[in-house]
Design a protein around this nucleic acid. Structure first.
Lengths: 261, 261
DNA sequence: CGGCTTGTTGACCTAATTCAACCACGGTGG
DNA sequence: CCACCGTGGTTGAATTAGGTCAACAAGCCG
């Protein structure tokens, strides 16, 4: 039942070539353990998707505390998760890129402790929890891969705790962009450390625990020091090595596949 | 395996009564969904434990990046998880109380992105991943309960992100103690909001993203305002309602069982 | 055109850090 | 027994990172 197909490390770019590249879920765990899923499991997961739909920017997909019996897989676009304080100030707790199973944790939990919303336009796939439960009865290993994917979120949460607890403003912003860059790279969407990210400076503030004003000043510093620029949703990282040092970015928490030299 | 009849000291209140109160894992998910586990599943989980051992205070149990094939269940005492920044400053990412499956995420992940260490003396139970995998083949629902327990950690991580991102020093410390209090209450170990917690002020600083000095001043304020006191590892919460308001503590993220009125 | 959102900058303020000194306590060794 | 030391806690004074408030500019859209 386990690892029916022996797959060996390949260069990252080829890694993106799935044997069945037309799968809707082809980016799931891409670059971070997808090769541990058998062909059979990939097909089974893809089959389990109920339907797909497109969601406009800034729409709430799941409200906190609402009971849910489906989970959302992100096909394209960006989704975020956030919580509010008493006065309604937001704290982002996650940003999702294509290939992420955004709220798979709703499957065992049945309700969420936070909201889920799109950033730009997003295309999502819906999975019924009943279908997933059935999948789990027949395929314990696939179930463990799904479990694993929720634990990657957990690892990112921990890194966000670290970011907020131990880094200053410059480090926090740098770390944030390093993470997004690394995750996009794993799915082949960070071409030469450039990508678009439909966030405002206010959003960035909500992710990094700063104010909008201070994010603005921090971005200016990063720009002036030649590290990176972020203008109307377009990111260009000019010196990824230095940016990583500023953000104390150590990507092992992303559990990426060993990259071929 | 473990002698189920050799029960352990059991100072638990009545609401905690399990049908088999002598189980080593009797506190697992206690107060937060344990009733969704069948009698059969409880026994199976308890049987799956390989052995138990006692660990001295301030000992590292698992090092980051080390490959592991066992996971640790906390029977009694406290355990924390933390990460270090470049200069070696720690950031706590979790504090564990009895009944927590501390590093169950190592089962699907195989290595951890952080260290795991005891705070005071702790008694732990060891589970082989092979045994857990076998358990999963036969019992998909139990596996989902284990999955669920790792997601509770995830929810706490999110709340820690919120705490660091949106609260000031007073709120952060208040929130921290509210969480520990609530979790201990769920396992019957927060008698009238008093409990001991083997932390130093420096540890508290590492959990709340503050400096030791500032934690000291913050604790003084909490004491002076009659909210709570924390002295040599002894916590006394005098006004839980007000403390909760100060820390913007909303315990639904702990997914506790609905408390009878 | 006017009204909205997002970004930008300056002046001022405050929360938290840093640095430093000092105290209380529980060992441990002479 | 006490002197000594290390750890953890406490406090004050000086410093700084970041927040707050406010004004204004740039783009976008009805």
């Amino acid at each position: 039942m386990v690892d029916r197909l022996a797959s060996y490390p390949r260069p990252l770019v080829t890694e993106l070539e799935d044997s069945t590249p037309s799968l809707v879920t082809r980016l799931f765990l891409c670059g971070r353990g997808r090769d541990r899923m058998s062909e059979d499991e990939r097909l089974a997961l893809d089959d389990a998707m109920d339907y797909r739909r497109t969601v406009e920017p800034r729409q709430i997909i799941v409200h906190r505390d609402e009971l849910v019996n489906v989970s959302t897989y992100l096909i394209s676009g960006y989704i975020c998760r956030y919580m509010d304080d008493r006065e309604g100030h937001r704290q982002l707790v996650a940003v999702h890129v294509p290939g992420d199973f955004v709220d798979l944790h709703a499957f065992p939990m049945k309700r969420l402790d936070h909201d889920v919303a799109t950033l730009g336009v997003a295309e999502i796939g819906i999975f019924q929890h009943d279908t997933l439960a059935a999948l789990g009865r027949d395929r314990p290993h696939l179930m463990r891969m799904l479990w694993y994917s929720t634990l990657l979120d957990s690892a990112m949460h921990r890194e966000w705790i670290f970011r907020l607890g131990r880094l200053g403003a410059l480090g926090r912003v740098a770390h944030f962009f390093c993470e997004i860059d690394a995750r996009l790279a794993m799915i082949g969407q960070a071409d030469d450390h450039r990508f678009s990210l439909p966030l405002t400076q206010a959003d960035l503030a909500e992710a990094t625990g700063l104010t909008g004003v201070h994010v603005n000043r921090t971005l200016r510093r990063l720009r002036e020091e030649g590290l990176m620029s972020f203008r109307n949703g377009e990111v260009e990282i000019h010196d990824i090595a230095r940016l990583g040092r500023v953000g104390e970015f150590e990507p092992n928490y992303l559990y990426g596949d060993p990259v071929a030299a």
